[in-house]
Design a binder for these strands. Sequence first.
DNA 1: CTGAAAGCGCTTACAG
DNA 2: CTGAAAGCGCTTACAG
Lengths: 330, 330
Amino acid sequence: MEVSTVDGHAATIYDVARRAGVSKSTASRVLTGQRRVSRDAVEQVKRAALELGYVRNPAALSMSTSNGTRVVIGVVSPRGKLVVDEYLARVVTTAARVCAAERIGVGLEPIALNDPNPFDALAHDPTVHGILLVNTAESVLDAVDDLLVGRVVSIGVGSSRVPAVDVDNYLGARAIIGRLFESGRSRVAMITGPAWMPCVNRMTKAYLELMSATGSPNRNVVGGFTAESGKLATNAILRQWPDVDAIFAVCDTTAIGVIDALRARHIDVPADVAVAGFDDTELAHYAGLTTATHPVEAIAEAATRAVLDVRATRLPDLYFPSQLVTRRTA
Amino acid sequence: MEVSTVDGHAATIYDVARRAGVSKSTASRVLTGQRRVSRDAVEQVKRAALELGYVRNPAALSMSTSNGTRVVIGVVSPRGKLVVDEYLARVVTTAARVCAAERIGVGLEPIALNDPNPFDALAHDPTVHGILLVNTAESVLDAVDDLLVGRVVSIGVGSSRVPAVDVDNYLGARAIIGRLFESGRSRVAMITGPAWMPCVNRMTKAYLELMSATGSPNRNVVGGFTAESGKLATNAILRQWPDVDAIFAVCDTTAIGVIDALRARHIDVPADVAVAGFDDTELAHYAGLTTATHPVEAIAEAATRAVLDVRATRLPDLYFPSQLVTRRTA
DNA sequence: CTGAAAGCGCTTACAG
DNA sequence: CTGAAAGCGCTTACAG
């Protein structure tokens, strides 16, 4: 943040106007990028603003327009219980950093999956500049208030009214499964996410397509995003398909649980069963886990910027590429 | 957040005043907790506010008082480069959750250790409600602007003007080192933090005291908070004191590096050298690392609440207890 | 194209 | 103890 001070206080639009030799109104018009202003005024005001290190006071803006002073990160979960994992923490931290430059704050609000009207309060809250949806699902997207359209962006799945910003986990999953095939595996099981969480559906799609294309059997089970769920899923997989030779989990933490369960049964990784995760977390690094990158910071930054500059038209969806990271487990 | 709506908009103080049958002024006096108001008015206004689910609009508050709309998390580092680790992410996430209930946002600002005037802009920024200092050092604390006193809280070391909220890592370190002694170790080396980061000084103090009390040799080296620094420090320790039988690192990540370095030299953990960390991160869990808890969420919540309700008097320092967690490495 | 004026929600001297 | 009025920084009809 670069807020210079004029006479002990942060520069206001009045300071800018005076220095530029115009009225507050004209200064405001220039600063909001309106059409009907003379070239001269534009130039003077812009220069004055730059010299004074002027940054709009969002509180004042908020009073005169519908603009809010904070970006709310709405975290969807089955019962509205806020679980802070590394992923969410990285999203929040990035958003807080990006918003700070515009003197906008961020807030964290749980959203219950079964809440019929999750945006009731947020839509009418004048402090809310926009909403960043995390872990969202279709029912929540459908409930997005008309007042909110153009100010809400989803990190994950989107809808006709809400643009999506996410990792391209479809191609990421293809790369990982391709790697498993290349290393000689053919009986690949997949552990997906919880049924209500559609952001990993594209990974399942990639899996099903590749299995179908290679004439391999479909073996997918539902998991959570915890190591514990990875253990449970592994046990289920081994019970149903004892000849499995690779397990692909949609997140690294789950994959760690897979490895634990396998080792507990003296099944060697990767000799007997190869294991791959997704996300490339620090944990994967230490566990030597083969995975694919998930550029969370880049995604969160893009999504935050999209929420920050409100526009009438829905932004196009944005998918960031995922890179295969080959380590010891596959 | 529980903002009800009146006629399609969030309730304002005007709605509350009307419902209570008083003027805005009186309503405001009640809501700000001022003295000179009749019992009757207090009761009516409070009831009206409750019924309407009234929550102050921080943007409007910000306009009429010096109150800001966001809590800035100031992260100190040698060159002002913002490194987001798990610890910081947990602090930011907790702050964002706590602030959301008061419709205040949070922001993230890097602060350079060598900046002679790190609070110049923040002190005069009307959007800044208060500051949460992370990883701070004495020089930064000394630079805290008069305008900021009472609105800044440090997670880590404090000063005469800035209250500290932190883990009681002095007792935590004592517990860990005690455990090392109990398990028969006597030549304990310690890896401290970077010299500029004083929040772990109390751990070093505990170490030096215990070494002195038991007539053990002092063996401490400077480290960073990375696994890589743990490796380097381990090599330095082994070079200087080949007979070392335990290594205590001030953070888990460093301890992981210690274990790696030890294993690379075929030194068994814990048979040959016991290893302990601090923080009890997820990584420690998976590595079977003996460590002590660091209740980051509780600390961050307390610190955030302290920043949120501005008061004239400096709060007392607050130290949260740390619990020993014994696992395989010590 | 430009300036004076009104208004956003709130608090706080200022008179009563 | 209470209400009317001013003011915080900004934008946007409203007149020119």
